[in-house]
Design a binder for these strands. Structure first.
Lengths: 104, 104
DNA sequence: TTGCAATATCGTCATATCTCGATATATAAT
DNA sequence: ATTATATATCGAGATATGACGATATTGCAA
C-alpha cells in the first residue's frame, strides 16, 4: 500500500528548510499528544484548523505551509466534508531519509 | 578527534537547500575522481579554484556558496599560502544525519 | 617594490519566500 | 435560500537569497 513516487529531493529539502514546517511535521508524529483538543477521530489525521490554532500564524500562512509540505509529498490530505485532515506520509519520509543518508 | 559542536539543524538544512551546494558536497566525497586536474595533494582537501572551475558559476558566487557550507559546518577550510582547501566535515554530517533520522 | 594569482567582499539587480488581510470557494446547517 | 464554518487563493509589502562584475585583500614571486 501507499504507492508513492520517489521523493523529489530538492523539493523535499526546500520544504524542510523552514522551522514552522518542520515543527508541523513533528507535531504530526504524535497527533493525540500534540492536538489534545481535536474532537474528530485521529484516523484520518489532524484537522488543518487545529494546526492553525497551534501555530501562531494567520490562516492563510498556515494554508500555504501545508500546501508546501503537501507538494513535497511529506503530508497527505484527506478531505471530509468541510475539513481537511493531514497526516505524515511516512512512506515518502522514509524514502527521503534513505536517499539523504546515502547521498549526503 | 574532530571535536565538533553539534549541528545547527536549521542552518544545515538551509545550506543543503540549494542544488549547487549539494553538488559540491557530493563532489567532495570523491575528490580524486571529481577533480582529476588538481595538482596539489588531496591531503587537505580540494582547492577552491578547482571547485570554481567545475561549477559553472562566477568566482564570487562560488565563494559565497562555500562560505554558506562552511558556516553550517558542513565543510572545513584549510588555508595554505594563497590557496584554500575544502573537505567535508564528516563528523558534523554524521551528526546531522543522526539527528534528522530521529527527528524527522 | 611591483606584479600576479587566489579568494573575499561589496554593490546591485532579479527573483523567491514569508507574511498578512481580504476575498473566494466549498460544504454544512438552518 | 441564507448563513456559518473551513480552507484556498489573491494581491501586496517586507525580507532573504542568488547571481553578477568590480574591487579589495592576501600571499607569493620576480
Amino acid at each position: 500500500m501507499a504507492k508513492q513516487s520517489s521523493p523529489d529531493i530538492d523539493e523535499v529539502i526546500k520544504a524542510l528548510a523552514h522551522p514552522v514546517r518542520r515543527q508541523m511535521l513533528e507535531w504530526l508524529k504524535t497527533p493525540q499528544k500534540s492536538f489534545p483538543s481535536q474532537v474528530h477521530s485521529f484516523e484520518l489525521g489532524v484537522c488543518a484548523g487545529k494546526i492553525n490554532e497551534k501555530a501562531q500564524l494567520s490562516q492563510s500562512t498556515i494554508s500555504a505551509h501545508l500546501a508546501t509540505l503537501q507538494r513535497a509529498g511529506l503530508i497527505t490530505p484527506r478531505k471530509v466534508g468541510q475539513w481537511i485532515f493531514y497526516s505524515r506520509n511516512e512512506d515518502l519520509i522514509g524514502k527521503f531519509l534513505a536517499r539523504i543518508n546515502s547521498e549526503l
